[in-house]
Amino acid sequence: MNVKWSALGEVAVVAFAVGVAIVVIFAVGVLAWSVRPAADTGRDRDGTLATVAAGLCFLACALIVCYGIYLVVPQFH
């Protein structure tokens, strides 16, 4: 029997780190996006800041998704 325990451990660690990171970044982006209407109450600069923060978070997630597609498609390797 030749169970690849190290590979299994690696899968667990990598998946945990990347999975949790994406959800956290995306959640921060969603939070920033949802407080954006604060701009209506006259706090304009806060609104801009929130929108930019949300944009950066979603961009980071999009980049990670692109890397995921790169991994899935063998022609890219």
Binding site: A12, A15, F16, G19, V20, I22, V23, V24, F26, A27, V28, G29, V30, L31, W33, S34, V35, P37
Partner: peptide, 27 residues
């Protein structure tokens, strides 16, 4: 399961103060 428990918990903690409808739409 472990990845999902952790990320779900954090997703709810982080977005707790956001507007519910906007948060739902985002996810």
């Amino acid at each position: 399961g472990v990845v999902a428990v952790t990320s779900t918990y954090l997703a709810y903690v982080i977005t707790r103060r956001g507007r519910r409808d906007e948060v739902g739409r985002g996810f």
